[in-house]
Design a protein around this nucleic acid. Structure first.
Lengths: 114, 114
DNA sequence: TCCATATTTCAACGATTATTGAAATGTCGA
DNA sequence: TCGACATTTCAATAATCGTTGAAATATGGA
């Protein structure tokens, strides 16, 4: 992950509503949640939420797909893991001191088994 | 770590100059570096740097001490590790799936051995 | 086709951010 | 005490951010 991407991801997470959205989506797992359900769960106006989804999406932290009238947002675990790797990259004097991939959805077995 | 603190830390790192400063300080290790040396290394105006140090310090990511005319800034590894823990906290459906502490200074042996 | 639902787009606003130049503060050595 | 050095403080500025209300778009069902 490039520094620019890391900054985008950090900035995307560095905001109350967006951090809530992302955490909710991480808990929701790969299937994601419709925008409306997120708006209701977090009590945020739908148009405000669209603004934040855009930021998260630009940062590569979430994806969208349409399902009927709903837009389903889902966390992008790969990007989150890339961010975590980036952040630990210059610890321990350059020697990697942590297992690489970290963040996986609950149950459901991730595509790439450890 | 509280959500508020996590947001402060994320926001502190989500900026070009500050991310550079922090990475530099991580590499410098617990002894830190004088403000002037950082300004020179990164080619940033000293007063601009003071502004960013403040943000990093408020977020608990760096500490300062005076040494003669110099101010020595040093990375606060504990906060960084707390942030990393916070970020992985709701992965894997709540089950911790990563070793807790992650970021340690190079050589020099950290205070708390694994 | 028409209406209701789900979400996005747009313009506007006040608040916060990052940077700059000039001036102030604190520390050291002569 | 004086002057040089290291850093901070302060005020000003342009740019970006987060939220809002109103209007637009897209989809599905009657």
């Amino acid at each position: 992950m490039e520094k620019t991407d890391a900054i985008a991801a950090l900035a995307a997470l560095a905001q109350d509503n967006r951090l809530d959205v992302f955490r909710l989506l991480v808990q929701a797992g790969p299937n994601g949640m419709p925008a409306g359900a997120i708006a209701e769960a977090l009590d945020v106006a739908p148009n405000t939420l669209t603004f934040h989804f855009d930021r998260l999406r630009t940062a590569g932290l979430v994806t969208v797909r349409r399902d009927g009238r709903s837009m389903i947002y889902a966390a992008q675990f790969d990007t989150m893991n890339a961010l975590l790797s980036f952040l630990t990259e210059n610890c321990c004097g350059g020697t990697p001191c942590t297992p690489a991939a970290i963040c996986k959805p609950a149950r459901k077995r991730a595509k790439v088994p450890a």
